[in-house]
Design a protein around this nucleic acid. Structure first.
Length: 555
RNA sequence: GCCCAGGUAGUGUAGUGGCCUAUCAUGACGGCCUGUCACGCCGUCGACACGGAUUCGAAUUCCGUCCUGGGCGCCA
């Protein structure tokens, strides 16, 4: 039997040193769990009891604690992310770790007024301080976190405890702490969840200038050993291994930083678009027909009908122009059944889609570049620490982005690439990189040949072989594509036919063009690509929590 | 889908026919160690993807299967 297994069972025995007041608090009567059942708290093993808590019993105790809800969640009208504001309001220094749109400032004093616990806070754990909040001047603290590293020097041992706010050192001078704490410390494995309460000492030698000497130490959830990958990053892991155990991979501060920043990106984009009058919509992801032909669709069984996963909200956001919403946006998943296998493609991606009435392609390009700048600016202002973790020195792009006609773009590319492009070719990745090297910043490619753009792109009236379509490029790759759309019903039908598609299968869409359709324009932007290029990530899978690619369907 | 490269302890690697009962690191376990911060030192543990073939002899060569990474087409 592996030694790790043996250790796990030994560590499951209750080894908790509690103060009398804490004992009292933990033996309250049955409480609602918030999960449709009640759990009697007194089932938790008493300190020093000889009862062996099974892993199931341990989890039960956790559920009890985690499920407790003293009050309904606060309204989400608060500018801060729902839930997060209340949860962190007691610890103002920590708010900085939750990226929030940079224009949103919580009302002064709100942190102090709101003393009720947030929806995630619990009775048992409400004394817990985020690790960030423990400073050299803190007198005593109770923290809960994961065991990041253990260094046993003999008479002295160091435990690094990590939560999402940071890492703190817990120092155990073996001759000075109670034997019960030593017993627990001996059984702790890396990545276990532990609760530590103790005095805080300002020590220059310790990380963050402070450390905790424990008066209580409790294993809340033991981690099996060996770990599927090394969270402390002494040994690297390959992408595949990392995704197999993504929940562990994301515990790495560096990986976590990517997703904190991604959250800031989507929050900032949402806030920006709302401030420009765009209405946040949600459109169907299960659809009956292809949006624009071309890309492959994932078929699904929909009762007795044939259905597909949506490849783009394109048709629906245009329909909302006919609905008179005038400006809409959506951040949601898109599905592409293409069998590509590259570092910049996912089969399930996140798209930020925008559509605006009474606007042309130039108007929405202006909007897009303003959004990019706003998002970069917000990330730079609110995510400094996460950027530092990733070693990224973020430069906010300058506007206006150069707008290069397609014809010029292929000329630029042809100066350096081997396989020359001719008119009517789409840009190859090599061409994108060649142009990116010349331009050196975000840019647009405009005035595309009508033939290589979707049917809904508006041709120029005076030279219909070109259309009012554009791509927005990062020097490394395409981030967004958009266009002014055709709003004339008959022209649209003509273009659908010209693409070899059947207008009949688009009737639900075409119908909206017959009862008053305003001129409109819009674009779609890949969130993973935006994050990938912003943070200079080598693989788009780094920017998706649970990437779906050609071969991966789990986790 | 096409092309290329791979699959060796939990993780990351070395190893191109006998020097391999397989290297190094990390890890786990045991021991020593009171200021570590990738702690250090000693000892122990743990692996050649699967099936077939060639050979006196295969981690190494060949064939097949499964799996993975990257490039391309296409796209965001």
């Amino acid at each position: 039997m592996p030694s790790g297994r043996r250790q796990r069972f030994r560590a499951s025995t209750p080894k908790t040193l509690r103060q009398p007041c804490l004992r009292q608090r933990s033996v309250s009567s049955s409480i609602p769990t918030g999960h449709g059942r009640s759990v009697n708290r007194s089932t938790r093993p008493a300190a020093g009891s000889s009862a062996r808590p099974t892993p199931a019993r341990q989890r039960k105790g956790l559920w009890t604690a985690a499920g407790r809800r003293s009050s309904p969640p606060q309204s989400s009208c608060s500018p801060a992310p729902p839930g997060a504001a209340a949860f962190f309001s007691r610890f103002p220094p920590v708010q900085a770790i939750i990226p929030s749109p940079c224009r949103s400032n919580p009302p002064a004093g709100s942190a102090r007024q709101n003393t009720s616990r947030g929806p995630h806070c619990t009775q048992v754990f409400h004394m817990r301080l985020p690790i960030r909040a423990v400073t050299p001047t803190t007198e005593s603290a109770e923290i809960i976190g994961w065991v990041h590293e253990v260094r046993d020097l003999g008479g002295l041992s160091f435990f690094l405890i990590r939560d999402r706010t940071g890492i703190i050192q817990v120092t155990i001078p073996k001759k000075k702490v109670p034997a019960e704490i030593l017993d627990v410390a001996r059984d702790v494995s890396r990545e276990s969840v532990v609760r530590v309460r103790g005095t805080v000492k300002a020590i220059e030698k310790a990380p963050g200038g402070r450390e905790i000497v424990p008066e209580e130490l409790e294993i809340i959830s033991i981690a099996e050993s060996p770990l599927p990958l090394d969270v402390a990053e002494k040994v690297p892991a390959e992408m595949d291994t990392r995704i197999d155990s993504r929940f562990l991979d994301v515990r790495k501060p560096r990986v976590r930083a990517i997703f904190f920043i991604r959250s800031a990106v989507t929050c900032a984009a949402t806030e920006f678009l709302a401030s420009r009058g765009c209405i946040n919509i949600t459109t169907p992801k299960i659809v009956a027909a292809a949006t624009e032909g071309g890309t492959e669709l994932f078929p699904i069984a929909y009762f007795e009908k044939e259905a597909f996963m949506n490849q783009s909200p394109q048709l629906y956001k245009q329909m909302m122009m006919a609905a008179g919403f005038e400006a809409v946006f959506e951040i949601g998943p898109i599905f592409r059944a293409e069998e590509h296998n590259t570092v910049r493609h996912l089969n399930e991606a996140t798209s930020l889609d925008v559509e605006v009435s009474f606007a042309d392609h130039n108007d929405v390009m202006d909007l897009l570049e303003d959004l990019i700048v706003h998002v970069y600016d917000c990330v730079k202002k609110t995510c400094g620490e996460h950027l530092a973790e990733l070693g990224v020195d973020l430069a906010v792009p300058a506007t206006p982005f150069p707008r290069i006609p397609y014809v010029e773009a292929i000329e630029i590319a042809n100066r350096t690439i081997e396989e020359k492009l001719s008119f009517g070719d789409d840009l190859t990745p090599a061409a994108e990189r060649a142009i990116g090297d010349v331009i050196g910043q975000h840019y647009f490619i405009v005035d595309w040949p009508t033939d290589i753009r979707p049917y809904y792109a508006m041709p120029y009236p005076d030279r219909p072989e070109f259309c009012k379509a554009f791509d927005m490029m990062h020097p490394r790759m395409e981030l967004s594509s958009g266009a002014q759309r055709i709003h004339d019903h008959d022209l649209l039908v003509e273009r659908i036919r010209a693409k070899g598609l059947s207008p009949e299968s688009f009737e639900f869409y075409l119908k909206t063009f017959r009862y008053g359709m305003p001129p409109h324009a819009g674009w779609g932007l890949g969130i993973e690509r935006l994050v990938m290029t912003m943070l200079n990530l080598g693989n788009i899978r780094e920017a998706a929590l649970f990437p779906r690619d050609r071969h991966r369907l789990t986790p």
